[in-house]
Amino acid sequence: MQTKQIAEEKLDALRRFYRCNKRLPTYSEMCRVFGYSSKNAAFRLAKKLIDEGYVEKDETGRLTPRADRFGIPLVGYVQAGFPSPAEEELVDTLSLDEYLIDKPEASFLLKVSGDSMIDAGIFEGDLVIIERGARPNNGDVVLACVDQEWTLKHLHRRGKSYELVPANPKYPVIHPEGELTLGGVVKAVIRRY
């Protein structure tokens, strides 16, 4: 027995509240905004808003707007005048995470030990980001499993077989016998000073 849709004024009041406070009202604040005398009415309205897809509850139970239906402008909202160019710019920023990691589900970290890759700029203690399941190109730095240990080396193709080439003349080139197990391809190196 679904009846009326949610009145546009109510949505507008919520949008106004959202613009001023950058969040949706709590139940008691909804009572104030809509003049309800009980929180139950606010609860019912919230349920309706959720059912109709305007808002959703986050894991703490707070209401958050759904951008698609609730209609929040992507550009930062300012009270008067022109949209702030600074905020407009910030909408499309990458976090360092996003910058360094293409496939979050397949990315792993490894703390580098040893100095076999120093000429490639990979030092002991560095963190490398490894993407599992990525297809390596010739010359890529890969994580290979040799003698049940992870090792970082350049992967080079020699005819039908592969060799693992260190970036330090002190170490020999490894010619894996039989099957070569790859842990992934190195996508980034992180070093904190």
Binding site: I101, S107, F108, L109, L110, K111, L127, I129, I130, L143, W150, G183, R192
Partner: peptide, 19 residues
């Protein structure tokens, strides 16, 4: 027991480390 610089038991990098 192998936390990286800047990590603590409360806050650590949410990416698995390979051993």
């Amino acid at each position: 027991s192998n936390r990286d610089k800047g990590e603590s038991d409360r806050k650590y990098i949410g990416i698995p480390f390979l051993k």
